[in-house]
Design a protein around this nucleic acid. Structure first.
Lengths: 225, 225
DNA sequence: ACTATTTTTTAGTATAGCCTAAATTAATAT
DNA sequence: ATATTAATTTAGGCTATACTAAAAAATAGT
């Protein structure tokens, strides 16, 4: 469709576009100025400014007062940034021994480094990983994503098993909690018991350790069976 | 002396400071606005602006119309940036198989990533290297530099030997030339002949290959004996 | 349907970093 | 020593990205 080369975005435009992409993934509706403002921690007025600019570069469709939709070009660019972010996360965790709750901020800086060849070589060096340390899929060069089928832990039946493949909430606090109880990405789990009235469950991790998890935690863990 | 924490610099201020540091290393006099302008590829008027800002942050001493001197704080900050730049160069060459003439631009971006812990872990991961791929010393966390004694290749006597440890000119064109003739950092050389009237010489590289080098090339190669 | 509230945009301001053109200061040459 | 030239700074402008306050549009409540 788009014959033209993708536009070049500034550091800041890239961040806004990434935020818009993530927000679009959630509710399938258009994304509101206020939501973006919250996500980006800037004022709505600043968001309006930026939306005009992103609209001019055709990475979003912008109708005043009615929120925005990301375009195909926008999606490609956002996925390129996400690819870089996640590859750097893999690097930080696997090569530099960062724990998975420490990598976000640093990757947020590294993702803006422009060199294409750098990312290709990094990808190769890391063995072409398909998922980041949080279990999120790494898009390929062309923005294609192979995601694995996943269910919230809360949907697994008693005595059902699976592997933790991702988390929804990736706040540092949550990740630290998971680390503490040994529920890392890739851990094999088995549901031992489910308590109906409060939504909490008991699971066995790696056939060794039994832990209790509250409904809040259970809702934020994704399982591949 | 300076009790206060070092100031935080913007991306652009960091680049100017690095340029001023490098220029100070050459002639031991104050650095002129024009020199900085040439180095940074910006106009002298922009340099004046920036000098005022860097002066306000006390990383340089700025006397209008008389050029600038870098302060102790400035030196520390510049060396931190240089440390990051050179560590990333080592990473790019040793881990990602970049050739040494490809690393400059990418390292110029990577050097601005702020995380302290990232640089510590990178340093560790690389095995605490003391020199970058061009043979330039990597300052430690505190800005201390252990440089090895080095002579320009032009000063080596006939039949004198040594190892190439650095280059003065590190333009991509020059580095590609060296690569082509096999004169990499670490190569062992022996001076076979020196031609007085044009300053060119003949050297033997790694006891195998004899090559001729013009005065221009010879002046830009540094040898450790 | 119409008012009150919320959301979004516009208008105007600030700062960073660049620019050109003009003014000023320093250096040089006779 | 003064006049010319060169280097540097100032003045004013531009763009990007933020902000606040005010205006305008959309939404919600009765």
């Amino acid at each position: 469709m788009s014959e033209n080369p993708l536009p070049i975005l500034t550091y800041s435009e890239e961040n806004y576009l990434k935020a818009i992409f993530h927000l679009s993934e959630e509710g399938k509706k258009g994304v509101s100025t206020n939501d973006i403002s919250t996500e980006m921690k800037t004022r709505p007025a600043s968001v309006s400014d930026m939306l005009r600019k992103l609209g001019d570069k055709s990475v979003i469709e912008y109708r005043k007062y009615y929120g925005v939709h990301i375009t195909e070009d926008g999606k490609k660019l956002a996925l390129q940034t996400i690819r870089k972010h996640r590859l750097w996360e893999v690097f930080l965790v696997e090569k530099l021994n960062f724990s998975w709750d420490e990598v976000h901020e640093v990757a947020d800086e590294l993702e803006h480094i422009k060199s294409k060849i750098l990312i290709q070589r990094l990808d190769e060096y890391l063995g072409f990983p398909k998922f980041d340390p949080h279990g999120d899929p790494i898009p390929d060069e062309y923005g294609d994503v192979r995601s694995r089928p996943r269910l919230p832990l809360s949907e697994i039946e008693i005595s059902g098993t699976g592997q933790i493949v991702a988390v929804k909430d990736s706040s540092a606090a949550f990740l630290r909690y998971l680390d503490k109880v040994g529920a890392y990405i890739g851990a094999r789990i088995k549901v031992i018991d489910k308590v109906e009235f409060d939504g909490s469950i008991e699971i066995l991790v790696d056939n060794k350790k039994s832990i209790f998890m509250s409904k809040e935690v259970v809702n934020n863990i994704l399982i591949m069976q």
